[in-house]
Design a protein around this nucleic acid. Structure first.
Lengths: 334, 334
DNA sequence: CTGAAAGCGCTTACAG
DNA sequence: CTGAAAGCGCTTACAG
């Protein structure tokens, strides 16, 4: 039952404890010099009266709203979502609300208006969440007097702070995992040759192989991020008889497509060919105990958390922060 | 460049316009009786000085924080995510921030503390986001003096407001789509018999068939929400030669499993057997122009939006609100 | 129609 | 160590 008891204010606490408002405030906030006895008396009184400071009054007095703005191009997109959720979860744990402005980054006018609205709200920080590394986001850092952090995108201003996936580490991780399993003839099927994420993953994979004195079993198969391309590529691998003992898919869709075709052709997975994907979309979809594909989780949720943590952390460390990926072993590398 | 110009206050506007603070306030908020001339002069002045009211001061004076609390069990779970994002997007469009309290619903103590914290912040409303219909959420409505809405879960208090998927409509939609394509021998593969969502989808499917004077081609195959179960079920359909011309999968995973086995056995999809799933996880994963599986989108994002809209709407309509699903036609019913 | 005043509850120099 | 006062900027009865 919602007992409609009158809100207890700091003045009430002060009156009951027999001190002034300012003394009560100091006692509860730990500022200034106060005798131990007085402090304890006030604290006990506050506790007894079930006092909670009015957050809005504190906000006004301190000029901090305990709200962070999250600016996105398209909040509903698959890859932004975990980033936003990660950030919002972390912020909520720290009593910070999120004001989500979606799709206002695009039009200049909307953005100018948004900036004014956010400043009027006295937001404590700004998190710009992008959708990958295809293009740089125009920096809005200078428009705010509070810290601005970029997640899952890079701004066009080098001194800005951004958090992005570590695509090189992803490629390296896939390679090292397969090498550790004894695989030596590794193929790679991935997206367009001009896709930056794809390029960096290729680079990481090559590094891992090079460290073992190896190279890829064949030149990289560039196509698109789709399952259909995975199937097409697998047909070519079979037709040209590359004799591979492992395939790294640039993402899970590709890996799935590769698997379907190989399996249909009688190739045993993982005995004959081991398979690794990227994205952890099985985990993205549903938390199955049944895990099939070995994959590498890019760490989008963790990236959102890290960006939020940095934003709240105070001192801004300029530059790019790379999110460490996680290997998730499934049946396809057994 | 962040021009550090002094913030313009309402007092400044009043002074420049040559009126009192209260008159200026009334003019800009449209309250009370004011001469047209005065109002226009004040509005012009506000515009000229680029005045924006301090949101925190407004909040304190009005007792509204423009913040909604979102309470979840596990914000990072696949199905809560779109609901939360939908809600946050809608709320952001209406200048409402979201304070996400994750996983505090479970322990009584945490919850009590959270309620006190939220009341102290003078939140404007509460959105409880669940993870489906397996179990009812303990009602927290009475703990707050602001409106409380439940999304993707039902509370244990009948007069509460909740928004849930329309599983019956989902089943019906699948059936009607297949009937419209001329299919007559339809099988259904779904999760455990005691799964509520599965039951309701079965019911809807049966209703659609009954309306056409038909019944299912075979008793429902109950198993689990997994691809593996879809494969197993499909093997049985083949082994027992059910002669179906369509299969409805309880979700997309099941449908995929069914498809793999049927296709491997030489069944042409959709010519021989049409296939429908539920969840739209291809869309969930990545926005492919390439769409393969025909599926039914449960509408989680829309449900989050609707719940948020209702929460802001003022008058609360008690009871259960059902979210309409959307049919997304792909190649498997091509 | 307009304005002086109180109120929303806190925090924080500044005196004492 | 403690308190009176100003300040954070608004809104809103209430007089005039």
């Amino acid at each position: 039952m919602a007992v409609p008891k009158k809100k207890v204010t700091l003045s009430d606490v002060a009156a009951v404890a027999g001190v002034s408002l300012s003394t009560a405030s100091k006692a509860l906030n730990g500022g200034g010099r106060i005798s131990v006895a007085t402090r304890q008396r006030i604290e006990a009184t506050a506790l007894r009266l079930d006092f909670r400071p009015n957050g809005l009054a504190q906000s006004l007095a301190l000029g901090r709203s305990r709200t962070v703005a999250v600016l996105t191009d398209r909040a509903e997109s698959t890859f932004s979502r975990p980033v936003i959720i990660g950030a919002a979860t972390y912020l909520g744990q720290h009593e910070q609300a999120v004001l989500l402005y979606d799709a206002r980054l695009r039009r200049r006018d909307d953005m100018a208006e948004s900036i004014r609205a956010l400043n009027a709200r006295r937001i404590d920080g700004v998190l710009v969440v992008g959708e990958g590394l295809h293009h740089r986001t125009r920096s809005v850092t200078a428009e705010f007097s509070v810290p601005v952090t970029y997640a899952f995108t890079l701004s066009d201003e080098p001194d800005d702070v951004s958090f992005v996936p570590d695509n090189v580490a992803i490629g390296r991780m896939a390679g090292e995992h397969l090498l550790a399993l004894g695989r030596r003839r590794i193929a790679h099927v991935t997206a367009e040759a001009d896709d930056l994420a794809a390029q960096l993953r290729v680079q990481g994979l090559r590094e891992a192989l090079a460290a073992a004195g190896l190279t890829l079993a064949h030149e990289v198969l560039h196509g698109s991020w789709t399952e259909a391309w995975g199937r097409t590529a697998a047909q070519r691998i079979l037709a040209e008889d590359w004799q591979v003992d492992a395939v790294v898919g640039g993402n899970d869709h590709i890996a799935r497509g590769v698997e379907n075709v190989l399996a249909a052709a009688g190739v045993r997975i993982p005995q004959d060919v081991a398979l690794v994907g990227v994205d952890n979309w099985e985990g993205l979809i549903i938390n199955q105990t049944e895990r099939h594909l070995t994959t590498i989780d890019v760490g989008l949720i963790g990236m959102g958390e890290a960006a939020a943590a940095h934003l709240l952390g105070g001192e801004q460390t300029p530059g790019v922060h790379y999110q460490a990926p996680t290997l998730i072993v499934g049946e396809t590398t057994g």
